Computed example of a mutant assay.
Amino acid sequence: MRSAHLSRPIRSVPAPVAARAADPVLLVAHGSRDPRAAAATRALVRAVRAARPGVPVSASWLDHTAPGPTEALRALAVAGQQRAVLVPLLLTAAYHRRVDVPAAVAAVRAAEPGFAVRVTDVLGPVGAEVDPALLAALRRRLVEAEPGRFDALVLAAAGTRDARARGSVGRVAAALGRELEVPVRVSYASAAPPSVGAAVARLRAQGARRIVVSAYFLAPGLFHDAVTAGARDAGAAAVSAPLTDAPELAGLVLRRVDALRAGPDRRGNPVPAVPLAAATRIDAA
């Protein structure tokens, strides 16, 4: 079984030389009772602002933290804005993207009929495509966890009952495994099996000796804490931190915004927020 080693230095992602006038961008996070989650979203807001100076960027949450997206969008309308772009900070297009986000937008349109809102794709895979920036962010966090050489990987996600959403997590795991050239398993913190401990045990039974866990989370909180504890109890060598404000994630947010502005192509290719040639790369030896 081949051993992966994340060793090359991280190159920073350059900010655009000049910003262009743009509609306000509202990031919409899931929300959590854990204050670390809201702090992570605010950190991502700052990272997006830094990557695209001059673009108004703000945050909202679907639950537990104010403002909610309806309130935040109405505030923009009251302030005189005519349009806004909403970016769901979600890694799968499950219930929150299919139900909660459209409901929030519908409420704004009913209250402010002259205010236009456009919604981007989620940050996770769009169809069969896994954005290179998402993989680069996951690899960055693995480097920071200092795993050394490893011969298998678990991608630990929050969990969902939506089979299509689980399929998108599987596509991320497969793409990450191909890049690192190691076997990979998916685990879930809730709603679906297997647990991270079971995934680690399965890989060990298949012959892996040094297993690391890549956390497929945008922010810290109860789920990431549980994954970290379960992975350590199962003997995993390292667990990465959530993606939070990784520069690649900020670039991915802007790629989603730019893809929406570009028109019908939803793949994020026409107007990349950060040139892929300049994006961070972390290569496996």
Rank of each mutant, 00 (worst) to 15 (best):
S3M: 14
S7F: 03
R11Q: 13
R11T: 15
A22Q: 14
A22K: 03
V25W: 08
L26M: 03
L27Y: 01
G31T: 12
R33P: 00
D34H: 09
D34I: 05
G54V: 04
G54Y: 03
A59P: 05
S60K: 04
T65C: 01
A72G: 10
A75F: 08
A77E: 11
V78D: 14
A79L: 06
A84E: 10
V85M: 03
L91M: 13
T92C: 14
A93N: 12
R98H: 08
P102C: 00
A106I: 10
F115Y: 08
D121W: 08
P132K: 07
A133M: 14
L135F: 00
A136M: 06
A137K: 07
L138D: 04
R139S: 15
L155F: 03
G159L: 03
G159S: 09
A175Q: 00
L176T: 11
G177H: 08
R178L: 06
E179N: 04
E181R: 15
P183Q: 03
S187M: 05
P193L: 07
S195L: 12
G197Y: 06
G197H: 07
V200L: 06
R202S: 14
R202C: 06
L203E: 08
R209C: 01
V212I: 06
V213Y: 01
F217W: 01
P220N: 12
G221M: 10
L222K: 10
F223E: 13
V227G: 05
V227S: 02
A231W: 02
A231D: 07
A231N: 12
D233T: 15
A236G: 07
P242E: 08
E248S: 15
E248C: 11
L249H: 00
L249W: 11
L252A: 09
L254P: 09
R255G: 14
R256A: 12
R256N: 06
A273F: 04
P275K: 10
P275T: 10
A277P: 00
T280F: 02
